[in-house]
């Protein structure tokens, strides 16, 4: 039941099939370009603490978007628990380091592993029961809501509504805005490299095969179930690592840091901007969204309205994502026939 349906669903959001560059220099070239541009951000943001905070949060969201993109864009699993998995990383790191007394790095790694296990388990259950996109979406949404309520309810451990102070990492370079920014940027680049290498490996071929036509992929001998779970494991590890690192940098975690409305919804908007299924699209989407959100801050609640309109417009007319479409318009030489795909990586 779910086979063909899932493939149809993901090809909808992924738009046309994405070409994957096979050359390694080109892959690292595009990642390095993204890194170079983002590395220059502190130069013009300057020493405004607030703005650097926004920039760091933007990078954390870039990691979330890459992780979600790996799980949803590459293997068509609608994970509506991005915030919750990041929260497993965030609360896990904070509690392990502060309450249990595990060294900070070990706490971060353990928490990320925990997030990977939870994500992998959710994916395994969905795959084993061959749940379609919607059902997997509901199961992960249920997990996200349970996590939020657990954090709110178990207030003796998690601080409930107001959250907890994270003392691990205080007094180190993680609390210096500029170095923290570069740590987060390093994490973004790490996620990009991992995703990029995955895409051009055997695993990446399997991802694309099962996204384009799951039944055909299965018949050609691709172990669809296994690759889905792999993608969920790796993607969730990224989410947990980013959530944990952000907790150490921010020095405080609360339910809204990892809430469904605050994370998952935003990540979906970012992917609508950047293009689902592309390599650097999520980072571009996160950047554009973060800047736009700052520019529109005066609008207050009306920002939500604006994003709603944008989502409708983007998914209705520009399904490949705003940035890839614009890039194609720019790159298309005047006079060349319409619809010619640009070379290599979109975005």
């Amino acid at each position: 039941m779910s086979g063909r349906a899932v493939a149809a669903g993901t090809s909808l959001v992924a738009g046309a099939e994405t070409r994957v560059s096979r050359s390694l220099p080109r892959l690292f070239g595009s990642i390095a370009a993204v890194g170079a541009v983002l590395a220059a951000v502190p130069l013009w943001v300057g020493d405004s603490r607030v703005r650097m905070g926004v920039a760091i949060l933007g990078l954390a969201f870039a990691c979330y978007a890459i992780g979600f993109n790996l799980i949803f864009g590459s293997t068509g699993q609608l994970f509506l628990c991005v915030g919750a998995l990041a929260g497993v990383g965030g609360y896990g790191t904070a509690l392990l380091a502060d309450r249990v007394g595990v060294p900070v790095v070990a706490a971060l790694v353990l928490a990320a592993l925990g997030a990977a296990l939870v994500g992998g388990l959710l994916s395994w259950v969905a795959v084993r029961r061959s749940l379609g996109v919607i059902f997997a979406g509901i199961i992960t949404l249920i997990f996200a809501l349970s996590f939020e309520n657990l954090v709110l309810g178990a207030s003796t451990i998690t601080g409930g509504d107001s959250g907890i102070q994270v003392s691990a990492g205080s007094g180190t370079f993680l609390r210096e805005r500029t170095t923290a920014y570069y740590v987060m940027l390093g994490l973004v680049l790490l996620c990009l490299v991992v995703h990029g290498l995955l895409r051009r490996s055997r695993v990446g071929w399997a991802f694309r095969a099962l996204r384009d036509d799951e039944v055909a992929a299965e018949l050609a001998g691709v172990d669809v179930a296994r690759y889905r779970v792999y993608a969920a494991l790796v993607g969730s590890a990224m989410l947990g690592l980013a959530g944990g690192t952000y907790a150490l940098i921010a020095g405080r975690v609360s339910p809204t840091t990892y809430g469904f409305a605050q994370v998952d919804v935003v990540v979906i908007v970012m992917l609508a901007f950047g293009g689902i299924g592309t390599l650097v699209g999520p980072v571009l989407g996160a950047t554009v969204f973060t800047i736009l959100d700052e520019l529109l801050i005066e609008l207050g609640q009306l920002r939500l309205l604006a994003y709603g309109v944008l989502i409708i417009v983007l998914f209705l007319w520009i399904r490949r994502g705003l940035i890839p479409t614009l890039a194609e318009l720019v790159r298309r030489k005047p006079g060349s026939p319409p619809g010619t795909a640009p070379d290599g990586e979109p975005g």
């Binding site: 063909r4 349906a5 899932v6 149809a8 669903g9 090809s11 909808l12 959001v13 379609g132 996109v133 919607i134 919804v265 979906i268 207050g300 609640q301 009306l302 920002r303 939500l304 309205l305 604006a306 994003y307 709603g308 309109v309 944008l310 989502i311 409708i312 998914f315 209705l316």
Partner: peptide
């Protein structure tokens, strides 16, 4: 048709939900 319809309806109505929520909260 099929799952593509479900997914598109889900995304578009999510957008509509934001529009209504944003307006009402404002």
């Amino acid at each position: 048709h099929g799952e593509a319809r479900v997914l598109l309806s889900l995304l578009l109505t999510l957008g509509a939900a934001f529009v209504i929520d944003g307006y009402l909260n404002w």
